[in-house]
Each structure stands twice: as structure tokens, then as C-alpha cells.
Amino acid sequence: MNRRRLTAKEASLVSCHLCGKLFRDTPAPKRVKRRCTRCGATLHSRKPESLARTWALVITGLILYIPANLYPIMTVTQMGRGTPDTILSGIVALFNSGLWSIGVIVFTASILIPVLKLVVMVLLLLSVHFRWRWPRRQRTLVYKIVEYIGKWSMLDIFMISILVALVKLGFLLNITPNKGASAFAAVVIVTMFAAMSFDTRLIWDRKNYHE
């Protein structure tokens, strides 16, 4: 039983990425997309252009991260005086007013998760490119965590949508959204797509199929 166990790719099989059905990987003429006979999704042994797409999306995310943090995301107008808040200044304000438990949550969702996600994606990409000896199981786990936590960054955007709708007390207190929110939402979406386009099977492949 010491025989090396095969992957689907090595056994000339391909599994549907959506429903998991296994197919024989027959060489199809170029530009003809093979489809899963069960669910109709396009069949591919590895996600197409996984590394290039993930790099492109990660870099887009890094660029968008700058306006997302520099521009204000919302303005609180109290007694006619408006103070625009960026993501960071909003968190600092929470800590200053003693709401540190909420401050920690917002900090995790809006700063820690996006940064962690971008850094981890870059490390995973490099590890595949340069065949690092970082344990494969650990890398797969790290990827899964990053993929799961991504959506929690939308917290700030949702919070703005709630506050804007709720706090309309005219001169007394008013909250309006700003352009920075759009940039931040874009970062979240782009990094979520980046995580989706990365293929963990590249971590496990013994040969570099992507080269």
C-alpha cells in the first residue's frame, strides 16, 4: 500500500469546480469549452490563469487601499459643525469615547482583515511561484481562513448605510456618506475576488502546471 496516490490531474481526470463530478480529461480542441454534463459549469483542471488573475486583483486591491484610507467615509454634522471621518479617525474616535469593545471590532474588520488578507495572498502567491517549503496543509488552512473572513470587512459599509438612514435629525445631528466608502467597498470586493481566483491545488501540485 506504499504506492504513491494520484491526484485527479495525474490520473487524467478533471473534477467540476462547482458540483464535484469527475470526468475523464480528454484533450479538447482549443477554444472549445468543455462543460460539466451535470451542472453545466465550464470544466477546468485548475482555475484558469489563477496566478495572473490573483496577482492582478491583489495589486488592484493594494492600489485602491490608498484612497480608501485617505478619503473620508462619512461626515457627522452636529449643531451645524461637520467633521469628516476616515476609517482610521473613526476608530480613534471610538477609542477616545471609551467604546473600546466596538473599536476593536471595527478595527479588526476595517483595517486588520484587509491588510492581513492582502499580505497573506501575496505570501501564498510567492510560495507557489518560488516553491517555498511552507507546510502545504498550513497554507491551505491559512487560505481558507482568509477566504472566510473577507466578507466581514463590509461591516463599515453596512454600518454607514444604517447610520445614514437612521441619523437624520436635521440641524441637531446628521450623518452623510462620502466617497471614501466607495473606494473601501471596492477594496473588499476586489480582495474577495482575489481569494476566489486563487487555486489551492497549485500549492499541492508536484509539478508546476502553471508555468
Binding site: 451542472c39 466596538i102 453596512f158
Partner: peptide
Amino acid sequence: RVYHIIDTWGMLEVYMLAIIVAMVKLTDF
């Protein structure tokens, strides 16, 4: 198939947390 594609983009639980955060933020005012 479409269900599987849109699955990740439903974010009820994140909105829930946003409601809690917004509530706590507003209790001061």
C-alpha cells in the same frame, strides 16, 4: 448552479454585526 455562485455574496451576518455596532455608537447621542 446559480445558488452556488451567489452563495458567498449573501452577508446577513455581517449586516447583523453592523447593526450592533451602529446601536452602540448611537447610544451616546
